[in-house]
Structures are given as structure tokens and as C-alpha cells.
Simulated assay, not measured.
Amino acid sequence: MVHKVLIDEQALGWIKDNQSKVEEDYEIIYKVGTEPAPKQGSGDKTIGRFCEEKCCNLITGDYTAYLDILENSRIHAIQIEKYSADKAERRMYLRHCSVLGRFT
């Protein structure tokens, strides 16, 4: 099981109210804009490369992020699920780490 997650830029406001849930699910939490995670404004390809290199899942409000991530030749498949259970204005999605077609 993956024990690391990256919080995408679109989810930074959401994480403030949901930090405890994410901490229950993950040992290491990276946040876009905080070292060593990608800088704010980084594109989906950069986010995908970071997740591949660190083998971490991604929490994002951008359900189309997988389109650019799939351009990474080492990523052959992406598993996406709804992550937030609340009725937030914007649903959060969890993208599972998968390298060379294997979900971890």
C-alpha cells in the first residue's frame, strides 16, 4: 500500500479542513508549493512525474489531470476514485500511483 500522497494545488484549501482524514490514510503528505513537492503553478506532467518518482498517490479536485499524466511513458494506467465523502463544493479525487501498469 502506498503511504505517501501529494495534495494538488486545487486541494490546498480543502486539506485545511480534512488534514486529520488524510493523516489517517497516509504517513507522508506532500503539498504542492512546499518543498520537496512541485511549485505552485506546476503543470500536470510535473505533478505526474513527481508522483511517479516518489511513488505517491495524488489528491486533486481536477478530474482531468490524468490526461497529461498518461503522457508519461512509464505510466500505463491510472486508477481514480472519489476521495472526499462530504458534500463539498468541489469533490476531491484520489489518483493511485501506478508505474509500468502496476497499481501500488
Rank of each mutant, 00 (worst) to 15 (best):
D17N: 15
Y93N: 02
G41E: 05
G101R: 13
E81K: 14
R95T: 05
L12F: 00
Q10H: 08
Y83D: 05
I80M: 12
E35P: 09
H96T: 11
E53S: 09
S84K: 00
E9T: 05
K21D: 05
M1G: 12
E53H: 08
R95K: 06
K39L: 10
Y63A: 01
H96M: 11
L12G: 05
V5A: 00
A11K: 00
T104R: 09
Q19T: 13
T46G: 00
L58V: 01
I28L: 13
H96V: 07
T104G: 11
H76E: 09
Y63Q: 10
N18F: 12
A88T: 15
I15K: 01
V2W: 05
K31N: 08
N72Y: 06
T104F: 12
I59T: 01
I78H: 00
P38C: 13
R95Q: 09
I47V: 14
Y83P: 00
I78E: 04
Y93C: 01
T46Y: 02
L94M: 14
L94G: 04
A88Q: 15
D25A: 06
L58K: 05
R91D: 11
D44P: 02
A11V: 03
E71F: 07
G61K: 03
Y83C: 07
D17T: 11
T60V: 07
D86N: 11
K39T: 14
G41V: 10
K31L: 03
K54A: 06
D8H: 02
L100H: 15
H96E: 10
Q10R: 02
Y26F: 10
I75G: 04
R91I: 15
D25P: 05
D68E: 12
T60Q: 01
F50T: 06
D68F: 04
L100A: 13
D17L: 12
E53F: 06
H96K: 15
V32K: 02
R74E: 12
N18V: 08
I47G: 03
R90F: 15
A77N: 14
E24C: 06
Y26W: 00
A88M: 15
C97K: 08
H96Q: 14
Y83H: 04
I75K: 03
D8F: 03
K45Q: 02
C97G: 08
D86L: 09
I80H: 02
C51I: 03
G13W: 02
T46P: 00
D86I: 06
C55M: 12
N57S: 14
Y63T: 04
T64R: 14
Q19Y: 14
D8N: 03
C97V: 12
T64S: 13
E35K: 11
R49S: 08
I59F: 02
C56M: 07
C55H: 08
E52H: 09
H76V: 00
